[in-house]
Amino acid sequence: MDSMNSSQSNPILRTENLSVQFGALMAVGQLDFQIYPGELFGLIGPNGAGKTTVFNAITSTVPLSHGDIYFKGKSLRSLKPHQVVTRGIVRMFQSATIFPKIPVMIHIMNGLSCRTKSSVWNSIIRPPSFHKEEQTSRQRARELIQFTALEGFEDHAAESLSWAQQKRLMLATALATEPRLILLDEPFAGMNADEIGEMIALIQAIRQDGMTVFVIDHNMKVMQRICDRILVLNFGQKLTEGLPEEVAQDSRVIEAYLGGD
């Protein structure tokens, strides 16, 4: 909705000199970028360019060597991964990372855990508030099941779903954490054209609710179609950043892609 005037508002996510080093290897070096509220921001680059490391850094799963990351103006440094989620950032992993044996309904309710409060004591004593919270959680999970077209699979174990369904399940579970910014790591990988279309439709629908989306993918065509702005990463460094059509015509990008495969 407000993506039109995004460039005037404060960025929702801002990195300053973001650097991640593994031993002697600089996986990501001195990266600066901003994402504005409501934007669909894309990150592309050849294999090993450090794309996933950027997500790992934002979600605090790898420590920053230098620099800082600000979400809504506040630093994410020294937060634990689960605290980053509470702040409003959630991530969908590259391959369909799921809880294999857990049924779809409960799987999505797991995403709600960080927004609900019921304690161990509550679960033993079971006051009215416990039942009320369970009921609203179920209701919300049902809405997300409907949203991701997983009706009829409520009691199926997550591992029994198809690849595309598993990806949608992960999206639903991630959305259950009530994020303001969602990080999608290769959401279209391994999907056929129809399934990609469905996933794009879902992403567009999330944006209708004012969600900011940060996506990594290899599929240049799809990325050009959906992204508002794209950042190109090569050997952990920013190659260029701009509107999709600008990036696609940049000679350095073409070279990095053709030369780096």
Binding site: T59, P81, H82, V85, R91, F99, G111, S113, C114
Partner: peptide, 13 residues
Amino acid sequence: ENEDLAAALGMNV
């Protein structure tokens, strides 16, 4: 089932 995913969904593992 998956400790890393649990943390990535905001659970205090």
